[in-house]
């Protein structure tokens, strides 16, 4: 088989991994599986698209940066989109999740996230229809880099962006007071309050990080594949599988889990065909649950 699957896998894995960071943070800090996380992705992408269009309408056509398919408007729009998605997550928490959380039944929150997911996705379908759309219709020429692998400038840029974001989040989690507070809260919520950590503010940071990264993952899909209302929902299973494979609560784990699933998907596409891609995450998920439910970097619940 061709080694091209490595590049494809790393790209898919980056998208999954960035999304899985949000999933794993929500699970370890707020203690529920957020089924609306995929729809944060889609909303972030459409928001970014809207801002790109708005900038385009205001300043006219902007030349792309170097060999990339997009110019500065997309970068500005992405930042706006990240902020928007973070706010959306905060809002949803305020009106829905936080209220249910205070009733003390975690699984009700999961169900509410399922309902919210349906509502969010359908609203996108209502506003933008289910027709796919694109950031740019320009076709990029893939450059050969040896070993039969070809890669486009966009792909290189997005892989670098992923690496920078993952490193940034990792440093935030391990080197800053905010990150330590998040770790503390996920390990022992009662003790976290005792040592003076304001749970509400840590919860807000969690949503902001999860929402912003979901938006980046969505925009990556938008640049490399296409934009559809279901784009995020279809990523849900791979993201959950990546978070569980990596070990719930572990950010390096979520990213590594995402890369493994991305590579496995890309390999499966070459070997058995694209139509079975979605089954890969499920098989990996089942294997992890049977063999090592705590995942690669997880710690046993005590």
């Amino acid at each position: 088989m061709s080694l091209q699957f490595v590049v494809d896998g790393l790209l898919t894995g980056s998208m999954i991994g960035l999304g899985a960071i949000g999933v794993t943070l929500t699970y370890s800090i707020l203690r529920f599986s957020n089924f609306a996380h995929g729809d944060f992705m889609a909303w972030g992408t459409y928001a970014t698209l809207a801002v790109v269009s708005a900038i385009g309408a205001m300043v006219g056509k902007v030349a792309p940066i170097g060999p990339l398919s997009f110019g500065w408007p997309l970068i500005v729009a992405l930042i706006v989109g990240m902020a928007f998605t973070a706010l959306l997550a905060l809002l949803l928490d305020k009106v829905l999740f936080a209220r249910l959380r205070s009733q003390g039944q975690a699984i009700i929150v999961v169900m509410a996230s399922f309902g919210a997911s349906m509502a969010l996705r359908s609203l996108l379908e209502f506003t933008f229809t289910s027709r796919p759309t694109y950031f740019s219709r320009a076709i990029q020429i893939a450059m050969p880099v040896g070993f039969g692998i070809r890669i486009t400038p966009d792909q290189i840029a997005l892989l670098l962006l992923t690496a920078v974001l993952v490193l940034g989040v990792h440093l935030l989690m391990t080197r800053t007071q905010t990150g330590r507070s998040m770790q503390a809260l996920s390990q022992n919520a009662a003790l976290a309050r005792i040592v003076g950590i304001d749970v509400a503010s840590v919860v807000r940071v969690t949503w902001v990080i999860g929402g912003a990264l979901a938006c980046v993952a969505g925009v990556m899909i938008g640049i490399l594949v296409q934009i559809r209302p279901f784009m995020g929902f279809d990523m849900l299973l791979p993201m959950f599988a990546a978070a569980i494979l990596g070990g719930i609560g572990s950010i390096p784990g979520a990213v590594l889990g995402g890369l493994i699933i991305g590579l496995a998907e890309a390999g499966a596409v070459q070997l058995i065909g694209a139509e079975w891609r979605a089954a890969v995450s499920f098989i990996i998920l089942m294997a992890v649950l049977f063999v090592r439910p705590i995942g690669l970097f997880g710690v046993r619940e005590r």
């Binding site: 529920f32 569980i244 089942m286």
Partner: peptide, 23 residues
Amino acid sequence: ATLRLRSDYLAITTFGVAVVVQL
């Protein structure tokens, strides 16, 4: 596969079952 784990795992797995059956 999932009932020895927290209920969220069952939720995620059943979600996966539906995806695979659809596939």
